[in-house]
Amino acid sequence: MHNRSLELGVGAFVIAAMVGLLVLALNVSGLRFQADDDVYYLYARFENLSGLSERAKVSMSGVTIGRVVEIKLDTQDYVAVVKMAVEKGVPLSLDTSASVLTAGLLGEKYIGLSVGADEETLLNGDFIEDTQSSIVLEELIGQFLFSRSNE
């Protein structure tokens, strides 16, 4: 009654699909089971994020060193507060500056950090003070038209 080859086939099918799901999780969606010990969290205030989303990259000189974890609106000053998880192995000096950048002309938004000179480093929960918002194309065009009409 219990057909062995049939059971083997079903088992192989189920396991293949489970492995497939695992590949989808790890390789395709880039899911990482990252322990909290491996990262520290930094915050930064931006006037305008314009399209930066959670899980966006945080990079320094083009190397990804972390991800955006959370985006909130600070209702006191009405600026965006971005929480970033940065790898523990990358100490950042106190006067590091952060800016919202775009990969290519129409690519995804990411946060670019540029190196500072201070010898002290940022600790878990610190704010990056020196920030630069993303360039909004509409504003740029508006400024250009405005300056042309003044001439």
């Binding site: 799901l21 395709v28 969606s29 880039g30 899911l31 899980r55």
Partner: peptide, 19 residues
């Protein structure tokens, strides 16, 4: 090809919702 995919596909929002 793979990096762009990993940057935009979310496990819960895309993979799990598809399932």
């Amino acid at each position: 090809y793979w990096a762009n995919m990993q940057g935009s596909v979310l496990f819960f929002d895309d993979v799990i919702k598809g399932l």
